[in-house]
Design a binder for these strands. Structure first.
Length: 203
DNA sequence: TCATTGATGTTCT
DNA sequence: GAACATCAATGAC
């Protein structure tokens, strides 16, 4: 089930397909995993919010120009962000994973984060720290890495909500473009509602 | 060498 | 719930 390698799908399609997928990271300390509940699509050449806008090429962006399924770790300050490349080589598009719902290895995540509950993984920098995702994963393929997607286990979102992306002001129409996808009602998303936590958003 | 970057966690109310 | 200080890697110069 390597549908995320299907480059005939648009990046927006892949971003929605990834919701509910089980993301797994294996380390010496143990295994952690979680279901993806929030993603953002970045459309590369035409997308002013993407690093690869205008087909810019810098050393950091090398993984974005590789084939679908390549993992691109965007490091900023002390935080890492997890991206998955969606298109063929030299077409630098990708999906940013912004939040997951913890599944396995929760106590290990708590230890790494020093936080509990929804604070474990309800943000792009949080989930990478909880799962110990770092630059060693950068440029590797999601099919051959300690960081991978489960092909067996996944959930299906009851409803997918699309909203404008976060943290990209002054990018013209790209600021408003609804390229962020979340599992509606899931408490582990970036702007989780306090109410209706009883509904986790899965079928 | 330096300006830019943006999520996090704390603090304030 | 809102506002802000903080952190270090990147890339332009």
């Amino acid at each position: 089930m390597n549908f995320w390698f299907d480059t005939s799908l648009t990046t927006q399609d892949v971003a929605q397909q990834l919701l509910g997928c089980l993301l797994i990271k294996e380390t010496e300390e143990g295994l952690t995993s979680g279901f993806i509940v929030e993603t953002e699509a970045y459309l590369g050449e035409i997308d002013k919010a993407a690093h690869s806008y205008g087909l810019r090429r810098t050393p950091r962006l090398v993984p974005m120009y590789q084939s679908a399924g390549t993992i691109y770790i965007y490091t900023m300050h002390t935080h890492h962000m997890l991206n998955i490349i969606t298109k063929e080589p030299d077409n630098p598009q990708g999906v940013l994973v912004r939040a997951i719902e913890p599944f396995q290895g929760i106590s290990l995540m708590e230890e790494r984060r020093g936080r509990f509950g929804v604070e474990l993984t309800n943000g792009p920098g949080k989930l990478t720290k909880a799962m110990n995702i770092n630059k060693e994963d950068n440029g590797t393929s999601i099919g051959a890495s300690p960081l991978y997607l489960s092909s067996k286990e996944r959930k299906m979102p009851k409803k997918i909500l699309s909203t404008p992306r976060i943290g990209i002001p002054n990018k013209g129409k790209w600021t408003e473009e609804p390229l962020r996808y979340i599992v509606e009602g899931n408490p582990y998303t970036t702007k989780a509602k306090k109410k209706a936590v009883s509904n986790s958003g899965w079928i």
